[in-house]
């Protein structure tokens, strides 16, 4: 199903302890080498398998995301959606298979922090924000920039930084909550704060896990608008159960089942697929 790269990637992808150095070196190398089909993709998963004690959470999963694309992932419980996210963000290492970001960054060789620095942001199913920090501090920690301990120690607040945070607060409608503790926010506001933190990271790819779980209809619509807005400048992968919401997003849909892709296409195409119907409704 996957197009093989014309030329196999370098045997040892360049890895440097400094994420930015890695990034730049990889960019240079990507320019130098001949363009393969893989190199044009943003996210490239091929034949990924991961099992837990014999249970195959992901089974030969292959998935390609183009630059600037927004994709919705659906699937029943246990289809492997969260495990897929874990693999992309480095929380879980796959047993086998390839995971490439921007064509030739091998994600299986990086840990969570390095992958986040490469430009992949993740929002969790259950909103996880830093509850004893206020909204401002939450965003400030997420802002792109040096991630060294000593730079954090010496860090001084700048006008640019304040402007960026201002903008994100406006996008996520949290301006008046700026100095509230994150713990005091409502569930929906926490979800938005987490999306705001994603934006502050300025990632190329956003992985969003069930962003509207527990939201009111109005909040859901607002979130869909927010995600569409984000997708104008970045690539987004949304995992969601809520078909209304998926329809509202109006993007290509991938249905996972038992760890591999069952069906792919428009929502109408996918929901008409007899196999999908079978999986969701049972025999």
């Amino acid at each position: 199903m996957m197009q093989q790269p014309i030329e196999p990637g370098p045997a040892e992808p360049f890895v440097s302890p400094h994420p930015y150095a890695t990034q730049r070196a990889l960019e240079r190398r990507a320019k130098q080498t001949a363009d393969g089909a893989r190199r044009e993709t943003l996210l490239y998963l091929d034949g990924v398998t991961k099992s837990f004690d014999g249970f195959k959470a992901i089974n030969k999963l292959s998935l390609v995301l183009q630059k600037g694309e927004m994709r919705a992932i659906i699937g029943p419980n246990g289809a492997g959606k969260t495990t897929m996210m874990d693999i992309i963000t480095g929380k879980t290492k796959p047993d086998s298979g390839e995971v490439f970001f921007r064509g030739d960054v091998d994600l299986t060789r990086h840990d969570e922090a390095a992958i986040a620095s490469l430009g992949i942001g993740r929002k969790f199913q259950k909103p996880t924000v830093f509850e004893s920090l206020d909204v401002d501090e939450n965003l400030r920690l997420s802002l792109a920039g040096s991630r060294s301990v000593f730079s954090a120690l010496r860090h001084k607040r700048t006008v640019e930084e304040a402007a960026k945070i201002e903008a994100i607060l406006a996008t996520t409608r949290l301006t008046d909550k700026r100095h509230r503790l994150a713990a005091d926010l409502s569930h929906g506001q926490k979800q938005w704060l987490e999306i705001g933190m994603l934006l502050a990271q300025d990632p190329e790819l956003l992985l969003v896990d069930e962003p509207v779980a527990g939201m009111t209809d109005a909040e859901t619509a607002e979130t869909a608008r927010l995600l569409r807005e984000i997708a104008e400048t970045r690539s987004v992968v949304v995992v969601e159960h809520d078909m209304h919401f998926v329809r509202e997003l109006g993007v290509k849909v991938t249905c996972l089942h038992e760890g591999s892709v069952l069906s792919e296409g428009t929502l109408d195409h996918v929901s008409a697929d007899p196999r999908v119907v079978e999986v969701y409704l049972g025999r």
Partner: peptide, 17 residues
């Protein structure tokens, strides 16, 4: 702030780099 973040949700800090 980062220390507090680590105290409250260590793994979350990894995902923002």
């Amino acid at each position: 702030s980062l220390m507090t973040a680590v105290r409250d949700a260590e793994s979350r800090t990894r995902f923002i780099g």
